[in-house]
Amino acid sequence: MTGLIHMPDFFLFVAVIIVIASFVSLYRGIEGPGIFNRIIAVNVIGTKTIVLLVLIGFIYQRQDFFDIALVYAILNFIMTIAATRY
């Protein structure tokens, strides 16, 4: 490390901000009028979760989380397309 800053701590800071942002957008998912606001909320939270999984993989030095993030991205896309198509 550089001695100036411990890098996993900074990743943890970024992850905490992302979690707070996804809780704030969960408010629109619960409250928002109509079904379409909820679909956008699911899409937004899913996209934030991808970055969160990659950050967790960097914090704990585990490589499994990148594969999980890839699968989660594909599932999120398919879920959105299916929810808007039907």
Partner: peptide, 14 residues
């Protein structure tokens, strides 16, 4: 690459 492809596509679909 997947996010750059999929995110505008799903926005357009919604």
């Amino acid at each position: 690459l997947f996010i750059l492809l999929a995110n505008p596509t799903s926005t357009h679909a919604i």
